[in-house]
Design a protein around this nucleic acid. Structure first.
Lengths: 218, 218
DNA sequence: CCAGTCTAGGACTAGATAGTCCAGGAAAAG
DNA sequence: CTTTTCCTGGACTATCTAGTCCTAGACTGG
């Protein structure tokens, strides 16, 4: 992932606190605007205005719009992964997954599912347009899935999950249900499909829980 | 959705075969281009060139780009529903679902999952941009889900599916898995996540099958 | 075959948008 | 305090794109 912002390797730029803050302000504004309007429907002038900066600053910190978008992909990816690490890093039980599900649903129901997943929508918009962005997004999804599958591995090692459970596949299925849920909820302006989808995926995982006493699933 | 092309209601336009063919050619070209590049990244000049028509024809048949896009949403929706009707209308068994799954996977693997679902990608791109397009897409998704849930209802009535199965929820879950699968496959340029996601949803449905043990699934 | 209406072609315009440039100001270095 | 380097502002340009307009040709009904 280590790609520099276009600065020559020999000539190292001094970068001041103010500069860093400006760059951050631009990214933050781009993130906000492009989340609601989409990447292609957001102009640099929109970003400039919302970030209280100027054209030359934009082009000082980012070579062109494509680089800004790529930086945003990275930025948003890190935000999501950081948030998800909080909810998944210590995942050790099925009830932890349920709590994770509830947090996502609640977060998305604040705006009635209106805007979908920040990563998923970028993936749809950019995949056929910017190969580098696509591969970064793909890696981010993989890292996100790994947070889930790591948790499922822990559950399997602790005996909560049966041996024949495949954490990677379960994580992929859960992620697909999540993304599909976001998409349908966004289209319908209704959070329900997202809940149904996540519940399906959780039910599927549940069917791999070890059965200390009770019936298998139902 | 009977909205006229801007013509006054009293004055009805004659429309010739040639005109119909031109309109169709435009829609077909827009469909093709916007499928691979996305709606916003496709210009009217692209459409004009690809359809071998001219600006005035575009604006003769469609009031503006928004109307063209809306017509495309309808057009593509009808295409998908027609295709899906073929695969789902006579669905009566689990193995029918498996065949349906295989057909979708095979169709999408032709281009390595590169372009996702024509409806899903439009939904992501247009939902926050054109309320009317969003609601049409939402209705199309609902109709698609209904094709599935109708099949599941038939399965329940015939006793293949248990009484406690909820066809609507199962259909929503399957649709979400499908859309999420498309999205992840598109981002990864790899069909595998779509297969995993669909298999999860089918497995979930399978868990609601009546159990006279040996139910052949393949 | 004539008139009126529909269809086609493509040049043209207005506006938006990505990207450039340069002058002035702020911050660090000595 | 002076110099150098970096940061900021915003006017400016070239280009792209949606949308308009005018002319010519084709079809249909009488």
């Amino acid at each position: 992932m280590g790609d520099e912002q276009g600065a020559a390797p020999t000539k190292q730029r001094r970068i001041s606190q103010r500069g860093i803050a400006t760059r951050e302000r631009i990214l933050e504004a781009a993130n906000r605007l492009m989340f609601v309007r989409g990447v292609n429907a957001t102009t640099l002038d929109d970003v400039r205005e919302a970030s209280q900066t100027s054209k030359s600053q934009l082009y000082h910190h980012f070579a062109d719009k494509q680089e800004l978008v790529r930086a945003l992909v990275k930025y948003r990816g890190e935000l999501v992964l950081q948030r998800e690490r909080g909810g998944l890093e210590r995942l050790r039980s099925f009830s932890g997954l349920v709590r994770w599900r509830n947090a996502l649903v609640q977060a998305n129901s604040l705006n009635n599912g209106k805007y979908g997943c920040g990563l998923g929508s970028m993936a749809v918009e950019l995949s056929d347009q910017d190969e580098q962005a696509r591969s970064m997004l793909s890696e981010t999804f993989a890292a996100w899935e790994k947070l889930i599958s790591d948790g499922l591995h822990r559950m399997r090692e602790s005996g909560a999950l049966r041996e024949d459970a495949d954490p990677e596949k379960l994580a992929t299925g859960l992620m697909a249900a999540l993304q599909g849920g976001y998409l349908l909820a966004n289209a319908a302006h209704n959070i329900a499909p997202m809940e149904v989808a996540l519940d399906m995926a959780l039910e599927h995982i549940k069917s791999f829980l070890s059965e200390p006493s009770g019936e298998p699933t139902r």
